[in-house]
Nucleic acid binder design. Structure first.
Length: 562
RNA sequence: CGGGAUGUGGCUCAGCCCGGUAGAGCGCUUGGUUCGGGACCAAGAAGCCGGGGGUUCAAAUCCCCCCAUCCCGACCA
């Protein structure tokens, strides 16, 4: 491709809207342009990168027996009502105004619909179906360029099985394929156990990439043994509160204006672990008291998994009506019609202090065994940085991360809702068991840039680079340079090497070099009069900055071997 | 949805407090000189100052409403 005839609007300055490096560089290098919040046009150079990514995904998906589909973005809303996901997605789902259609944010329903109509026998399973297409989500807050958009490209794969063992196998295939895909894309990623959330199902893993600036997910990682988990499901070995030999008689304490655990700890001069924090939630309509240790934070995702169903916090008024006190003075003693659950750290503990359900009073010497009927102990807390790994005992770290891919064992949720079944060997009707496996295509490009750039611009990996070679004619008006660079361009192109050729006339050398570094092709082939006089050209490796001067005839060999 | 910021030639921004001829740098056009790390000289083109309403003799500037974009939070099957 000749730059003199190409559209590649580079920018010297950083667009004011771009905050993180990948967004800034994708704009500056002319890969894309914004159209509206969270909506981007991909320009020729950027689209080439997306195509490279999509091809890598396609190859790896095909390698595990995936079959590519092209599915409608416009879906009848009835299909989404069938699975209850109009409500589940809420405002995230784009709805068409003048037809009962929605813009698909994902495609479980469509896949299930096709499977239901056409897959009748266990003999037709398993299947792996995938698509690489535009998805639409009305994100409340698009951000970080292409990392969270309202319209984006996603590879979505769905596995169809009729046994749980089959699902495990399909899931494992995807896990391996994903490792290959992200590795081929040159990304330093890690895999974490994740919450399957309202998607349901028995298992879920996320493929994450550490990013302090762009990360929206939090993950707990152990640098020593490799343990990694989404914060929503992460565990640590925070010690239990020790049971003391003697449980003293309960005692009411006057604690004027004490609202927080920290205040209480200072007021009573007691360590925070002896203070049981009480939180009240409405779980499936039932008032539920949750006891947490001291300053521990409740992990709502864990709570949701333990209790299931819908839950919400109460308003201040409701709280007072239910307990007789305001938040800060609520406790487990003397509550009626409550179910009480407690964090594992408090199991069998005694000599605790908690609210008295009377403003400005707390109760001391609480013994959970003696005084309270705890219906369930569970791990409900959020892991904190510096706590110790349950596997190896070393310190855990909490990091921000970008979600590149997510794989789910969905189970029969969709098949049940849509009555998608097959007959097994005995003629018995069984629901189709699904898995769902997603990858964000633009995110791969952005993440690659986050991990591979310097002050001058992007540093593309060979696999994703729009072109392998950036050929520069240092002075496009010098006859020798013109002849030599054109000859190299023809030669490399005819050898199927992807070359972008800066043949622009009247552009200073410095300008061309800066553009080349910004665009970030792996190799720069520099043809200038200075070296040409000795019959030489120069090759610069973008990543290392290493320069090699070599005879013109050797350039192809060097590049072919790179 | 709550909090904050910003909106002025294509881009980055000044001007706004304190109302009175719309500015700079980069980019663009033309001509010339340059040609190995974002060159130089000269001459140009280009702006309903986000939109609407108000105050005023007079509004980019003051007031009100709206819209858009970004950031923080909430949210993120």
């Amino acid at each position: 491709m000749r730059l003199s005839q190409s559209f590649f609007p580079t920018l010297k300055e950083i667009p004011s809207d771009a905050q993180i490096p990948s967004h800034q560089l994708m704009m500056r290098a002319g890969l894309m342009r914004p159209l509206a919040a969270g909506i981007y046009s991909f320009l020729p150079l950027g689209f080439r990168v997306l195509q490279k990514i999509m091809n890598i995904i396609r190859e790896e998906m095909n390698a595990i027996g995936g079959q590519e589909f092209h599915l409608p973005a416009l879906n009848p809303i009835e299909l989404w009502e069938e699975t209850g996901r109009v409500k589940a997605f809420g405002d995230i789902l784009f709805q068409i105004k003048n037809r009962p259609l929605v813009l698909a944010p994902t495609h479980e329903e469509i896949i299930c619909h096709i499977a239901k109509n056409h897959i009748k026998s266990y003999k037709e399973l398993p299947q792996i179906w995938y698509q690489i297409q535009t998805k639409f989500r009305n994100e409340p807050r698009p951000r970080s360029g292409v990392l969270r958009g309202r319209q984006f490209t996603m590879k979505d794969a769905y596995s169809l099985d009729y046994t749980w063992e089959g699902l495990d196998k399909s899931y494992a295939l995807h896990e391996e394929a994903y490792k290959k895909i992200f590795t081929r894309c040159g990304l330093k990623f890690f895999i974490v156990g994740a919450s399957s959330g309202a998607m349901g199902g028995s298992g879920s893993q996320e493929f994450l990439l550490e990013s302090a600036e762009g990360g929206e997910d939090s993950a707990v990682v152990c640098d020593n043994c490799g343990y990694a988990a989404n914060l929503e499901v992460a565990v640590s070995n925070a010690p239990r509160v020790e049971r003391l030999p003697e449980s003293k008689k309960r005692e009411q304490l006057f604690t004027p204006n004490i609202k927080t655990i920290k205040q209480l700890s200072e007021f009573l001069r007691v360590e925070t672990t002896r203070l049981a924090k009480s939180l009240v939630y409405n779980v499936a309509g039932k008032p539920t008291l949750i006891l947490m240790c001291g300053t521990d934070q409740l992990n709502e995702a864990k709570l949701m998994r333990e209790l299931g169903g819908e839950f919400r916090a109460y308003s201040d008024e409701e709280l007072f009506d239910l307990t007789g006190a305001d938040a800060g003075s609520i406790g487990p003693i003397g509550l009626k019609n409550f179910q009480i659950i407690a964090d594992k750290r408090l199991e069998q503990s005694n000599e605790l202090i908690s609210g008295a359900n009377k403003n400005d009073f707390h109760i001391a010497h609480i013994d959970l065994e003696r005084d309270i009927s705890v219906s369930k102990y569970a791990d409900l807390r959020i892991v904190e940085t510096g706590e110790l790994c349950t596997h190896c005992g070393k310190e855990l770290r909490i990091i921000n991360a970008i979600e590149l891919g997510h794989i789910f064992k969905l189970g029969t949720k969709y098949a049940d809702a849509m009555h998608a079944t097959v007959l097994n060997e005995e003629g018995k009707e069984l629901p189709i068991i699904m898995g769902s496996y997603g990858i964000g295509v633009e995110r791969i490009a952005a993440c690659h840039i986050e991990q591979n750039h310097d002050v001058n611009g992007i540093i593309w990996d060979k696999a994703l680079a729009p072109f392998l070679v950036h050929l520069i004619s240092v002075n496009a008006e010098n006859e020798n340079v013109i002849v030599a660079s054109n000859k190299l361009y023809e030669q490399l192109t005819s050898e199927k090497i992807e070359v972008i050729f800066d043949d622009r006339v009247g552009v200073s050398p410095g300008f061309k070099f800066k553009d080349a570094d910004l665009l970030g092709m792996p190799l720069q082939l520099i043809v200038g009069d200075r070296n040409l006089k000795q019959g030489n050209v120069e090759i610069k490796i973008r990543k290392t900055g290493e320069r090699t001067i070599l005879p013109v005839e050797k350039a192809y060999d060097f590049i072919a071997k790179f």
